[in-house]
Simulated scan of single mutants.
Amino acid sequence: MNKIKRSFYIIRDFFEIYLPLFAFIVMFLTFIIQIIARYIFKFPLTWAYEVTVIGFSWTVILGACYAMRSRSHVKFTLIYDMLSPKKAAFIRMLGNLIILFAFVALIVPSFEYVKFMDFQSTSVFKIKLSWIFSAFIYFVFSMIGYTAVEIYEDFCTIRGKTKQSLESGEQI
């Protein structure tokens, strides 16, 4: 079981840290190369725009997964910061349930759209658009998982369980 869990974490890190990092580096270097080629050598590169758009898309989509994982994304907590911890957890849980249902509803349309985009390719590199948009499918499943964890934690808070009692294996 420990090897399966470790493999899962390695795959998750690949998609949420290393792939967006690589996409950003490629995007940034391509952007610099395009500036040099266009303004110094007066020779714009046709492929640079395509690389930067793909790199930006993958950086944003997969980077958002890591932001959700590390809980560093923006949250508007003005209302439930004024409430008691149990009431705040209840309101958070309701909001997260709405988000969870929205992402579950996105599963089938996301697969259908990616499958639909298989007939189109990028203009320069002829990369199938389904490969480019496939990052969104990982994003959907990642958001479902991270949102479900937050719902569970809020449910435990409502029931009066602390994080320490959950980690020690105490039953709800």
Rank of each mutant, 00 (worst) to 15 (best):
G160F: 00
F76P: 08
D13Y: 04
T59E: 05
F24H: 02
I4N: 08
A88M: 01
L97I: 07
P109I: 12
R38W: 01
L129Q: 09
N96D: 14
F116S: 11
V26W: 03
F43E: 15
F22I: 15
G160A: 10
I99C: 11
Y152G: 06
F90T: 02
A88F: 06
I132Q: 02
F136K: 06
F31M: 15
C65S: 12
G95Y: 04
I127R: 00
F119L: 11
K3H: 04
W58C: 05
I151N: 10
I99R: 05
V108Y: 10
D118T: 08
I79E: 10
M1T: 10
E150N: 06
S70V: 00
S165M: 10
F22V: 14
F28D: 04
F31H: 11
T162H: 06
K75V: 15
R92T: 10
S142C: 07
I132D: 06
E150G: 05
Y39M: 09
Y9L: 15
S165L: 07
Y138H: 02
K86S: 04
I144Q: 01
F90I: 04
T77S: 03
I99F: 00
S72W: 01
I127K: 05
F139E: 05
P85E: 15
A89D: 06
S130M: 01
M1E: 13
M27I: 01
Y80R: 03
D13G: 11
F76M: 13
F101T: 12
I151G: 13
I151A: 13
E150P: 05
F119T: 15
D118A: 01
S110R: 02
M117G: 08
Q120N: 14
W47D: 11
W47C: 09
E153W: 02
M93P: 07
I98F: 07
M1C: 10
I25L: 13
I4H: 02
P109H: 03
L19I: 10
S57M: 07
I98C: 07
G95S: 12
A88R: 03
N96S: 11
P20Q: 05
L19N: 09
V74S: 06
M68R: 05
Q164F: 13
F101G: 13
F119Y: 11
R69N: 09
S84R: 05
G55S: 12
R159C: 08
T30L: 09
A102C: 14
A148F: 07
E153I: 10
I4K: 01
I99S: 11
F76Y: 13
T122F: 04
G95M: 00
T59Q: 04
Y9F: 15
R12N: 14
F24W: 12
G63S: 04
I32S: 06
K128V: 06
F139H: 03
F136E: 07
I25V: 15
L45F: 11
T147Y: 03
F136C: 07
I99K: 00
K115N: 15
G55C: 12
A37T: 01
L29G: 13
S130H: 03
L83Y: 03
F41Y: 08
F139D: 05
I54L: 08
L106G: 03
M143R: 02
D81R: 05
R38N: 10
Y9E: 15
